[in-house]
Design a protein around this nucleic acid. Structure first.
Lengths: 160, 160
DNA sequence: CAAGATTGAGTAGTCAATCTTC
DNA sequence: GAAGATTGACTACTCAATCTTG
């Protein structure tokens, strides 16, 4: 390896700040959401996707694409959520190599009750601390970084 | 709960962008660092802290404060790293209710070899996609969000 | 009893193997 | 054989209980 190109102060401040912000903001919001609603962040993500889908159902691989989870993780998580009555699985009629995942009435009730809580936490720990200009700057930064990632997908496409 | 104050488009774009960016950037860098160096992100964090500490050693609770990990997580992780020869534990002499954690020569070698790789990944997926202005904006955003979090610590102080 | 730390049980996620259908 | 999905074994993290010392 050639001589390392270490980060200068500006770069290092940005990177370290990003790592800390990322870890702490996400875990605080996840924890408070779970405490006030009983839903973990993965639970919430699954239910949001299903509740917004037509008929409240999606094919498992669609859910996998939306969440970018490994298929085994998704399968395990859906099993646990099915045990808790939040979702149901059904075999796929047309060519039964796939399966449908459907949100149950209990799942709809859970996400409807959780969403207002969740948005309050997002406001408190994220949105309300930033100016409009900062929100726009952040959205653009995210767009750029995601575009860079999308240019070179990982070996395993589920790999992020 | 009063009427939910849903996010407008600007807020929602920023939040969703942040979540996606955060997940994907961190996991890509962690995965590539692990592949090219054999060190996981938690391994790397422990070794960086120890290698920068005087004498290459820290008290366990100091490491816990630096990483913001739960003490049980730290203890479990140090056990695994000790098994792999990266760190050593030693009882604390003055008042033996504590313990020292020391980086081994093998640990020093591992972090020295990994650091240049790691910085290359950080450049590729983060620093090099952003302008100086964006890096500064991001650092300031991080500072503000972290300050908001610090104002109201979680019930459990290890809780993020 | 509080501080510093470890342990064990339970839960979640990863990886590789498997199964079925196209 | 590849796509869609599940399973089991292994690893990692969390939570509560425990242990020891000040």
């Amino acid at each position: 390896m050639a001589k390392p190109r270490w980060l200068d102060e500006r770069e290092s401040d940005a990177w370290r700040g990003f790592v800390q912000m990322q870890t702490q903001v996400m875990s605080r919001i996840a924890r408070e959401t779970q405490r006030s609603t009983g839903l973990s962040a993965p639970d919430y993500e699954v239910l949001v996707n299903l509740s917004e889908a037509p008929g409240g159902r999606m094919r498992a691989f669609q859910l996998g694409a939306a969440t970018r989870w490994e298929k085994s993780r998704l399968s395990h998580h859906l099993s646990r959520m099915a045990d808790r009555g939040m979702v149901e699985r059904a075999p796929c009629d047309e060519g039964a190599r796939g399966s449908w995942v459907t949100i149950t009435p209990a799942g709809r009730a859970a996400i409807a009750a959780a969403a207002p809580q969740h948005v309050e936490h997002v406001r408190r720990w994220f949105v309300d601390s930033l100016t409009d200009t900062q929100l726009e700057a952040l959205a653009e930064i995210a767009e750029q970084l995601l575009a860079t990632l999308a240019e070179s997908p990982p070996d395993d496409p589920c790999d992020e």
